[in-house]
Amino acid sequence: MNQSYDTSKKIRHLLAGIFTLSLGASLIWLILEATGMPLTPDLGYVMNSVGDTGSINVVTAILMDYRGFDTLGEASVIFTSVAVTAAILAEPVFTLERPILSIITRRAIAYLVPVFFMFPLYVITHGHLSPGGGFQGGVSLAVLVILTHVVFGHNLAMKKIPFSLLTMGEYWAALSFGILGLLGIFTGVGFLANLATGVPRGIPGQLLSGGLIPVLNLIVGIKVAAGLSSLYITLEGNPRRKK
């Protein structure tokens, strides 16, 4: 590097480095202190979750059932960030353009896309059986939408996956998450209750089991996929601002 730094910048970098290192060191010390505490007895997630929720994936059981309210909150965070981005930037517009990638790539990807779609759909629908769930699958779907945009060009992609479909999908999914939660209120158990509302548990380990968990996974999947892909489209479709 040929650039010559002036002294004040050097000192500032040094201070920033020292600050970061000391912050990291104190953080590590705090974490060691905290994990060094004698562990409190297991709360029972691992032992009871299959009986309590019908989901054999404990992580999904915690995310969608024991702490479903936090998931609703985090999903709302994504919802709001997408809305904020849409409020700051203009409606996405794509002018005429040539496809960026060659015909070979496009044809190959066109055959592969259905295969690609299997993974997120599996992750979403089997969230209560295997690792993953609505969130991970939803983001994978969003990445696939991005892939479609990158490979086939924006105009074709916008025709195949209309922006209004994504927006509407997100709104409806968000609304149905909240309304599904109200089911627990009407049955007098508590907001976002699962098996206690009387929905059938099914046999743990089968696809249709876990009460409302697969439904919530599906809703979260749609919401996250629609939200994040419309976030990308809003960013990409915004004209580059000249200074």
Binding site: G44, D65, G68, F69, G184, V189, G190, F191, L192
Partner: peptide, 12 residues
Amino acid sequence: SYLGGWNPRIGI
């Protein structure tokens, strides 16, 4: 209010 009807030790 106990969300999902869970005991506050494991739920919200």
